[in-house]
Design a protein around this nucleic acid. Structure first.
Lengths: 216, 216, 216, 216
DNA sequence: AATGAATGAGCCTTCATTCAT
DNA sequence: GATGAATGAAGGCTCATTCAT
């Protein structure tokens, strides 16, 4: 019985190590040998437990999502939509920028976006869905509508894009662009900026939308 | 059988093939052998003309930038800042979305962002600089200031991020997010959205900035 | 078909084959593939066990030194310095000339001298040290001194040079120079000659040295 | 007519460059590309003028011998055999140790000894012969005999070996062995040592020889 | 006569995977 | 159930050589 336990333990250590290495290096640069080494397991362990590298990758994705992904209840309910948006953006950006276990999922996500391996297409949308709902809800409240039309989706895209860009860019380039070193405070100011910028944006396109509708 | 071409001819064929393959597969997945094959040259051709894969990569970047990148004079002068911003965003996005096979530069750019090879750091900033100047100028005019303080750079980042995101995402995912197929018209509407959204954003943070200054 | 040997077995076969090939062909001409072939192993075996060709080379050196080098106790104690010197030279030369295929170490040594790879500099002096001590001791006794001044080192160099030269020269050239085929007896006479020649040499420079000292 | 001249000029520049590079790096490490570069000629020049690398090597040997080898009349006649031997050794060692054009031949010679390419076996002995005669003559005079028996050849070997060893060893190792940095003065003292050491050696084996003959 | 473009054979190394134990 | 030994396919690079001009 102890042995069966050991099996699961090793398997989990492999998954954790896989998240680390895939997140740090991307799929191609990640070496199964290193994953095994970090997991304290044999070189053959990956093939033994998962069959091959591809399968390990897909399972690591799931694992990362379950273990590290942004907590569901990251946005306090019962506050104004404006505050909710600000909160959402802040928590998203902090999640991006801070090193640590919670960053794995976002990194994997990013890596996959830029270099699609085609190995996780099945689970991709399902994993993303709950997060989207939250943001879309906030946008709808801000706009004062309940439908999910093009305008809402465009706003979602604008907000997500601004947040995601901070991770897409490597630290050096970001510091070069902003002409100052990254600090906790800078990140906070950036989040404030994005919230303010986006809130105004939402409202502006809201007007545009109303005008269009009136015409129709 | 056309041997002994001008030398430059083969070299250019290699560069073109390199752009294709690097853009399609990324640096690691790109095989020197395939580049040579596509260029109709011998496996040793890359070494002969460029020394090694790294150098070829850097030169392909330059080549892609020169051949395919957005034309310098993309924004008509003598219009209102609002129109200039709209124009800038439209041309940027169209460049991203419509070039089809010829969007090599943007693809290379993206790949490098996600998986920095560190091989083009020297030329990187130089290639980007003129484009930035243009956008920063527009933002300054919109804000009615001439300095390049944090607020300006934040706005630049917000705008660029929204545009770039459209390429970060692969076509299928984008269509999934927006719940409709990509069309010329959709792209136009998206550009309009980003312009409107951002213009309002700039103005909003402008106010914030003025308020801050008054306090100081 | 004897797969899954102890691991050490294959490793040792590789080391032995490496000694052979490096000794026969020198570092550059030695091909990893041939070493593996001779060891009955896969091309990747060298990488598996040693990481790369350089490390294999360094380890082969150690192996050759341990396996084939001249036995420590080559000189009987408690005899006159003259006899000891004669013994030392005889055993050194015999070691050089007679070991046939097993003279790996001396061959490697020579190859390295002529084409320094810089890969064994660390172990080099350590491996040589004990042998030197023995000879230096004999020379000191012959000179009747205990210090290790320049004169002693010059004598060491003279003696070692004469012995080593017999290996520096290939067999054909040596036979050409001496106008007779190499035989056990010729080697013996050569060793006698070097011993006699050197003994007289040591004594001569000894006198020179005493005279110098008197002047000072 | 000027063109035919150019051909010979280039050919000679190639030979000179080949001597340099072969002497510096040995046959295997020498790259034809570098030889051509140093000669200011095309990559294909070696093959054009000499057919292949091997032939160039052989011709470079001849060239080095003719151009750089020790001058015939290096030993003043009409002095005592002792002085002649001292002179011979001094000039030989200086020839070895000093960098410069004259060192090429000796270096090529050495390289070939340690890593026989088998490409110059034909000319080898012929090129060496005149130098040997000079030394053998001196030894014979010192021994007071005219025959070239084994004893004479052994002495020749002993002397040459000591001199050659100074080049066989790389500078660092030599300084390590002698516990002091190489200086012009040290080289002079070494040459003195070898002369003194060898003179005594010759005389000692001379006695041995006489005794042997008496027995016979 | 001489050159620069182009080639191909071969080498070292990497790495996911397999297999006997 | 799990491991360490062993493999093979493939990649980047070197370099002497060839060939059309």
């Amino acid at each position: 019985m102890a042995k069966r336990e050991d099996g699961k333990v090793t398997r989990n250590r492999l998954l954790k190590a896989a998240c680390e290495v895939f997140a740090e290096r991307g799929y191609l640069n990640a070496k199964v040998a290193e994953i095994c080494r970090r997991a304290g397991a044999n070189v053959a362990a990956v093939n033994y437990y998962f069959g091959d590298k591809d399968t390990l990758y897909a399972e690591a994705w799931q694992y990362a999502f379950n273990e590290y992904a942004m907590p569901e209840s990251l946005v306090p309910e019962h506050t104004s939509p404006e505050d909710q948006l600000r909160n959402y953006i802040h928590s998203l950006i902090q999640n991006f920028m801070e090193k640590g276990l919670q960053g794995y999922f976002t990194r994997l996500y990013l890596m996959e976006l830029a270099n699609p391996t085609g190995l996780i297409q099945n689970s991709w949308h399902d994993m993303i869905k709950p997060r989207r709902q939250k943001l879309i809800g906030i946008i709808q409240k801000t706009l004062g509508i309940e439908t999910t039309d093009e305008t809402v989706l465009f706003c979602e895209l604008s907000i997500i894009s601004q947040c995601r860009a901070l991770l897409t860019i490597n630290r050096n380039d970001l510091e070069y662009l902003l002409c100052q070193p990254l600090s906790r405070n800078l990140i906070k100011r950036l989040a404030d900026h994005i919230a303010c910028f986006s809130l105004a944006g939402i409202r502006a396109v809201s007007k545009l939308r109303s005008e269009k509708e009136e015409i129709l």
